[in-house]
Simulated scan of single mutants.
Amino acid sequence: MSEKGAVGSWSTGLCDCFSDCGNCCLTLCCPCVSFGRIAEIVDQGTTSCCVHGTLFCLLGGFTYFAGIYTCLYRTKIRRQYGIEGHQCTDFLSSCFCSHCAICQEHRELQARGFRVSAGWEGNVQMQTSGVTAAPAVEGGMSR
């Protein structure tokens, strides 16, 4: 069963973790960093990676609360990009396969053109890097 308006699928599978070993190792050792980076991009920089990572760590001390938190962002990614799925599968993968789910979300953002490690601001700067200075005014400025 899929959500209304969904037209696509994830660019990689849930268990394709080893297609990006750097991301896999980071997520295995520090899932709070991986998740924080993803959430910052999904929220378009309204909250920093550090805030999301800290919340992930704080919630991680309680049963499945971190999974619920990451589930919210998995659902946001699916809705933003029209990926098939359901909140129930988002919840199950986020709670019981959290590392694989975070890796898949990272790969999805990469497939969509983001450099996840650069954060939101870094990605915005990369997109606008062609504009380095204001255009020159012929004859200079005068009053």
Rank of each mutant, 00 (worst) to 15 (best):
Lys76Cys: 06
Glu40Pro: 00
Asn123Glu: 04
Thr75Trp: 15
Ala118Tyr: 09
Ala39Gly: 10
Lys4Glu: 08
Asp43Tyr: 02
Tyr69His: 01
Thr132Glu: 07
Val116Phe: 12
Glu105Asp: 13
Val42Ile: 14
Thr132Cys: 04
Ala118Cys: 03
Phe65Met: 14
Gly67His: 00
Cys103Trp: 10
Ala39Gln: 09
Thr63Leu: 12
Phe91Gln: 01
Val116Trp: 13
Cys30Gln: 04
Tyr64Pro: 00
Gln110Lys: 13
Gly119Ala: 04
Thr63Ser: 08
Gly85Thr: 08
Leu26Ser: 13
Gly8Lys: 14
Arg107Ser: 07
Phe62Gln: 07
Pro31Trp: 01
Cys103Asp: 08
Gly22Met: 07
Tyr73Asn: 07
Ala111Pro: 04
Gly113Leu: 06
Thr12Met: 07
Ile83Pro: 07
Leu26His: 08
Ala111Ile: 09
Leu55Ala: 08
Cys49Glu: 07
Phe35Ile: 03
Leu92Ile: 15
Glu3Pro: 03
Ala133Cys: 02
Gly82Lys: 13
Val116His: 10
Thr54Glu: 03
Leu72Ala: 07
His106Asn: 10
Ile41Ala: 00
Ile102Cys: 05
Ser94Trp: 05
Gln110His: 10
Tyr64Cys: 10
Cys24Tyr: 12
Gly119Ser: 04
Leu58Ile: 13
Ala39Asn: 13
Thr54Phe: 14
Gly36Gln: 11
Ala118Glu: 11
